[in-house]
Design a protein around this nucleic acid. Sequence first.
DNA 1: TTGTCAACGGCACGTGCCGTGCCGCTACAG
DNA 2: CTGTAGCGGCACGGCACGTGCCGTTGACAA
Lengths: 193, 193
Amino acid sequence: MTDDRRTRAADRTNAIMRTTLELAQEIGYAKLSIEGVAARSGVGKHTIYRRWPSKGALFLDAVLTSGEPALDYPDTGDIAADLRQQIHAAVDLLGQPPLGPLYRALIGEAQHDPMVAAALNERFIRPQADRTVARLRSAQQRGQISPDFDLAVAMAILSGPLYFQFLITQEPLTHEYVDRVLTALLVGMTPRT
Amino acid sequence: MTDDRRTRAADRTNAIMRTTLELAQEIGYAKLSIEGVAARSGVGKHTIYRRWPSKGALFLDAVLTSGEPALDYPDTGDIAADLRQQIHAAVDLLGQPPLGPLYRALIGEAQHDPMVAAALNERFIRPQADRTVARLRSAQQRGQISPDFDLAVAMAILSGPLYFQFLITQEPLTHEYVDRVLTALLVGMTPRT
DNA sequence: TTGTCAACGGCACGTGCCGTGCCGCTACAG
DNA sequence: CTGTAGCGGCACGGCACGTGCCGTTGACAA
């Protein structure tokens, strides 16, 4: 198979994912159909089913490929400032369109489809969690976090309330809210003098 | 309208909800259909549509009515023990069938259907959160929690990581995990001596 | 240059469920 | 006794599913 061949296949793949995101934003994930994606992108349904086994898998791929949201951690040496900046970036991404509603729908689908849940974890959640713990560990080694503070739990306290607000109460995400969480977390994990 | 009439209507309503939960457990919420519920419960589809506007609304009603999970807070005076007992009860409920998968599907549906999300909040999430904050406030007034600790955030730190594990990583919920969260929270919110 | 073959767009099919009509029955209300 | 509301049953048009088949296209091999 020639590069040319692969290139055109990849082009089609990208076009399908782009159309998927467009349609999802216009009519919502619930009303999204593979039939609709095929029609709008001028593609046979087989061409989609050949690449993805389900609507959920296609949507997952489309969202994760589009974004690669680059939520990388800064490491300025100041753990409080770095966490703050990073979680504010997360709020800015999730708190509004386009990514907010798309990501919400993706997690919703993950509750019905174990394959989507597993792929979401492997491709996004776990790497993100690992980066968070790594940044926390670096701070702990520098003495900015109590040596016995549970870093996995610290990560969960950063992420959990954010997702709780995002998915459950569905109140708007604000910098002010995550600042309050961060404040409470810092009280607990900062070394006692 | 006679009481007899109302009673028989209520009986039918309960029968439909019971069948809904049965079917959801057998084939999963994703494959659940109103047609299937009507068939198994020996009821016309109209009878269902007359009571609920959508599959999501029916399912929400069925899950919340069935459970009324009675996650009430004890108040023994020991806030740490009370929180621990309450969150262990939550883990026991959500961490296994039947309620675990049903509740997961309900939250998943809430990501696609704003009406379900709103009803879930009003009927379960907000009351539960209010009870939690009330119990925390009682402890704060007794001096068991720092007077300036943000109680809404404390509630979010109790709930958030639990939901994060339940919905996102989908790792098993254990007493050990919530104990670790609770430990970290207590470090932060216990008054400094 | 010609033959091969995989991927493709288009079309059609059977299936399942949607939400909504209509029918005739039953049981209660007036 | 008559009217009426709720009901089960049935049928309908519509839509999307997932899967066949068909003819075309374009890159590669002989």
